[in-house]
Design a binder for these strands. Structure first.
Lengths: 344, 344
DNA sequence: CTGTTAGCGCCTTCAA
DNA sequence: TTGAAGGCGCTAACAG
């Protein structure tokens, strides 16, 4: 059985195509009885509207685009968060009648290649989400002047049609470091990701703010880069301990790096948290099953997606000025932090 | 600037719309010189074809659907694999000129709700992927008689248009258990997921096969259910050890459960692997950062997605008979397995 | 080689 | 309350 169209229904109901269209779209300028008959037949034929045809005339596709970017092929999606964020986006969009189209965007920066926006235009996307966008992305300038609304996650982007949704990295890092300071730590290390990432910048800011707030000096030699990998963090921790043997706590800019730090600590004969307190960032699944379980900063991932969905859908239905939303991250104290030895 | 159409280009090039269409689609029945002029103008205007309009006439949307199902809201996407699998799918599809539309499918089993297939038809999807499909899904019978090609991951589904892509769970579990047996273990426990999951069934099969192959008795009291959670596995391990104090090794049907087992073992004063060898399944990121790092069975996740993409795209372009592809999982020996105490 | 015609499935005037 | 006509942007015959 071929797919039923308005025409088929019209024929069977002995009315015009127009009448069917009106009945099915809930207009009230149609006879009670005819409408019911039409609806009944539509159900019989298992009619589903052809969205492509509809969007052609209404100029609204009901589709949002999603770009999951990454430095290397496949990095973006593999990120442990993207799943929950996407779920949040999807749920919110679905409840508003939108569908979601995912685009691959690890293509080479070839010249003839269509830009992100071009990909969207082909598919008549009404708005688009960007995850993992980086400051050095070649298409960044283009996005700023996008003709349709854009929601950027985890990064602030200024443009006339752009909306940024992120978590408050500064406050999150601040809470983590203050927690350590309040436990009595005075030599607190920081293993950051890599410089080009916006989040690295912001978390460093929070780190500094907490130190300042607790009257501790900011010592650059207590900061190292772990490249957001477990191995990188292992190296970084060794370096930190070598440089400052009086270090008693480390804040890591990601949970994955925190696990690396835990491993390195154990290899160096340092007991966690007895000899070294560790705080992570992200609260990935892994965090609660390490031993001891990791104290970390938890991101509201699902809500992040949900919020992004709401913001973008709003921006698409009625004109909205550019916005920036920050969600709060919360410290989850588990087993990798305790007062330093000398304070006990 | 509004979006340019063929009409705009035609006007500017002083040719018919048809000529433009032909030039841009690479037909050769068009003058060399006119073609170049048209292409040049298209570039100037930054023309992007309207796929909706095109698909209306060609009857080919160039879109595949993806359903990520889960028991609870958002479960599917959060699964640590889905990311890499989706990346594989996306890369393969993109290279073949397809786009991917993701559908939310945690809707209540309400009656008036459109089925998975209905959602696809609305969007003129040419084929669809299903991840996390369960045997008790109410739409399962419908899928078997789908009018368009369907690729089911991690589950075998028989239907005239269905293709199953999965990993060889039986062989993977077999390898894991044989590895333990070859180390000298004779009392090997098995912490499985839950009964309704197809994978649980298959991994149990592999477990039994390996025992048989090494002339070890299958003892049901050595098998427990961990519900695929870390906590569930903790309980399960306690139970197993309580029931059989001579147990020296445990195979877990997932890495997450393996971490739970490791935790429980450590709580009970059992050193891993000295007193208890543990093998997981999945090779999630976490597996390589536990201490000791987890011996586990690695799934080729990216290739799984890639293969699914290839199979479905093939099925869409030319008629293909239903197929079933099994990818090989490989044992990765790390630090949680060693010969049992009495053998040393 | 190029243009004309027709129509994909749907919605939206405008008349009746 | 209903129907006829037109067109969204594009491709696929068929003529010239």
């Amino acid at each position: 059985m071929e797919r039923a169209t308005l025409k088929d229904i019209a024929a069977k109901a002995k009315v015009s195509i127009t009448a069917v269209s009106r009945a099915l779209n809930g207009y009230d300028d149609i006879g009670e009885e005819t409408r019911n008959r039409i609806i009944e037949i539509a159900r019989e034929l298992n009619y589903q509207p052809n969205f492509a045809a509809r969007s052609l005339v209404t100029q609204r596709s009901g589709v949002m685009g999603l770009f999951v970017l990454g430095r290397v092929k496949g990095e973006g999606f593999s990120h442990p968060f993207s799943g929950q964020i996407i779920t949040g986006i999807l749920d919110e969009l679905t409840s508003r009648g939108y569908d979601l189209m995912v685009f691959s965007a690890t293509r080479p920066p070839g010249e003839g290649e269509p830009s992100y926006l071009d990909l969207c235009r082909r598919r008549s996307v009404e708005g688009a989400f960007f995850m993992g966008l980086r400051l050095d992305d070649p298409w960044l300038p283009l996005l700023k002047s996008s003709p349709f609304p854009i929601a950027v996650l985890d990064m602030a982007l200024m443009g006339r049609n752009t909306h940024s949704i992120g978590i408050d990295n500064v406050a999150g890092a601040y809470d983590a470091v203050r927690h350590l300071a309040d436990l009595g730590h005075t030599r607190i290390g920081f293993i950051n990701g890599y410089g080009e990432a916006m989040v690295s910048h912001e978390r460093l800011q929070g780190y500094k703010a907490a130190l300042l707030d607790r009257s501790l000096d900011y010592d650059p030699s207590l900061v190292a880069l772990g490249d957001f990998t477990s191995e990188g963090a292992e190296r970084a921790l060794r370096e930190l301990v070598q440089r400052s043997s009086d270090i008693t706590a480390v804040f890591c800019a990601s949970d994955l790096m925190a696990t690396g730090a835990m491993k390195a600590a154990s290899d160096m004969g340092l007991a966690v948290p007895r000899d070294l307190s560790i705080v992570g960032f992200d609260d990935i699944d892994l965090a609660s099953v390490t031993s001891p379980p990791l104290t970390t900063v938890s991101q509201p991932r699902y809500e992040l997606g949900e919020t992004a969905g709401r913001v973008l859908a709003d921006a698409c239905s009625r004109l909205q000025p550019p916005s920036r939303v920050l969600l709060k991250a919360t410290l989850v104290v588990r087993g990798t932090t305790c007062p330093p030895l000398q304070k006990r």
